[in-house]
Design a protein around this nucleic acid. Sequence first.
DNA 1: TCTGGGGTCCTAGGACCC
DNA 2: TCTGGGGTCCTAGGACCC
Length: 420
Amino acid sequence: MAAPLALVDCNNFYASCERVFQPRLRGQPVVVLSNNDGCVIARSNEAKALGVEMGAPWHLQKERFARLGVVVRSSNYTLYGDMSARVMRVLADFTPNLEIYSIDEAFLGLAGFEHRLEAHARMLRATVLQWTGIPVSVGTAPTKTLAKAANRMAKKNPTAGGVALLLTEAAQTAALAGMELTDLWGVARRMAARLGEAGIHSPLDLRDAEPRFVRERFSVVLERMVYELRGLPCLSLEEIMPDRKSIMASRSFGRPVTTPAEMAEAVATYTTRAAEKMRRQRLATSSLIVFVETNRFKPNDPQHCASQAVQLPVATANTGTLISAALRGFGAIWRPGFSFKKAGVMFLDLVPAHAVQGGLFDAPDTPAQQRLMAIVDRINARYGRDAVGFARSGKRRAWKLRSEHHSPRYTTNWDDLLRV
DNA sequence: TCTGGGGTCCTAGGACCC
DNA sequence: TCTGGGGTCCTAGGACCC
């Protein structure tokens, strides 16, 4: 059998975070609301038991919540991010192979723990609870897809104690028999409908389907799922988190926005926020999209949803440059006479940005350049963060050198660099 | 009045190249 | 009748996830 892995998932994560800091909320129905307090994005078990739906618009539920005694919290993403980091640090003590999958989930490679998988899972669960106050569920299985299913069992089954293992085919068959297609990781409503048309009505049907048929009729993704359900791993543990491929900042407005000045301000604000996020991840962009939307929930109002891509000559993480580019794009899609509900900015074509303060950015391409960047980083760490940077002029890549004794100059000669 | 904010991957089709 | 074939890149749109 493949080396087992575990999926650890924080229970009702945002609601649990609120409880850590307000213990009196324990045992009470708690919901957390989205930005602008628009709709429900997290529910405690007690709230779920009362029939509170995910995504329920708050303005339609206010009175009902009050009647039922549901405690309502506005979301606090900074807090949740911090709690997430604490949980992940504890998990790192329980495996050498950790993949942080989302703010509240992680996969743990468990090679070497085969002889005590259940005890390990229970110890992990107790430790996370004790050190962070967050309850988690642990699902252990030979593949990620089955670990997801195991995790679901651990959550649903009150006698499981938050831990479930799907290590044998018999256990896997029994578990899948109790699930709907849409309970599977990667199958949502539309895909389930299409599968139904092909005579696949349950997770067991899918597991036992012919992989080639599934690939031809559907996709390679679904074919992989067939194998995963059979216990043959197709999705590996990704311990190194790859760089983001896009970064977005967008918001719905609390009230309709009709003037270009207000819209432009929103675009500038979101651009600033996205640029901050991007710099935190040491990335830069040469391509952005700005978009605006009217209120899609008011079909009788005039609708205008538009987006505009803007290309920059070089990758940058400079807020001013990005704002002026975003506003240029905004100018192309702004139309008077509409009530806008939402706007946003997305950065694409992200490249590693080795920061040059106030300068240009570009990414090292070749392995040789990457090795050189490691040297550059060390020089900068020792002599100040922008002692050496690099830039690009047209298609020509050049290193930008600075020191106390020389004015900045560009070079393509590595030996120059090593003399700095 | 009021309905989230992020992300990823795959596919299909067209342009273009040799 | 047939009208090269293979490869890459780009874009738009769909589907899914947390």
